[in-house]
Structure formats: structure tokens, C-alpha cells
């Protein structure tokens, strides 16, 4: 990605600028506890929770910044925040 003077950019540049690298803690599902209530998908501020064909959900780690809202709000504590080790 080349930068433009003045920081001008078109909409949708995060398609190339993957922001998942900001993450310190990574959300991980425990599908045995998940009741498919969809709260995590609804509350994710970055649209980084995607539905799967089987009704469960998965994280898009290219964009999940690890804010932890999903884990905090999950009524079944089915999401654990795990320290990223790179």
C-alpha cells in the first residue's frame, strides 16, 4: 500500500490494512458452551465475527483487535481471551 500526501484515502482501505495486528488478547470459542445466541456477532465493533453454516460463529483474526467485548458479554462464558504469543 502506497501512502498519499496529506493522508488522503478512499473508503474501505482496511481491506488491505489488516488491523488484527493490534491485538494483545485473542478470543477463542468453546463450542461446547456456545448456544448460538448471536450476541458476539451483534456486539463486535469491527464486524470480525462471522456466522458459519452450522449456526456457530468464527472470528476473523485479520481484523479482530482483541477488545474483548464478545467475551465480556457472552452469557455462557463460551469465549476465552488468550494472550497472543508471536
Amino acid at each position: 500500500m502506497k501512502i498519499l500526501p496529506g493522508g488522503a484515502c478512499e473508503a474501505g482501505t482496511t481491506r488491505v490494512n489488516k488491523t488484527g495486528g493490534w491485538r494483545t488478547f485473542k478470543p477463542v470459542y468453546d463450542y461446547d458452551k456456545c448456544i448460538k445466541c448471536k450476541l458476539c456477532e451483534l456486539l463486535c465493533p469491527d464486524m470480525a465475527v462471522n456466522p458459519r453454516d452450522d449456526g456457530y460463529f468464527e472470528f476473523d483474526y485479520d481484523y479482530c483487535k482483541g477488545c474483548g467485548i464478545c467475551a465480556n458479554e457472552c452469557p455462557k462464558s463460551a469465549i476465552e481471551m488468550v494472550l497472543e504469543e508471536k
Partner: peptide, 9 residues
């Protein structure tokens, strides 16, 4: 549409 002075990490 364009953004000016957008966020630069």
C-alpha cells in the same frame, strides 16, 4: 468519497 488526514499507525 475520501478521508483526509486519516489515521496513521
Amino acid at each position: 468519497p475520501l478521508s483526509f488526514g486519516a489515521f496513521a499507525d
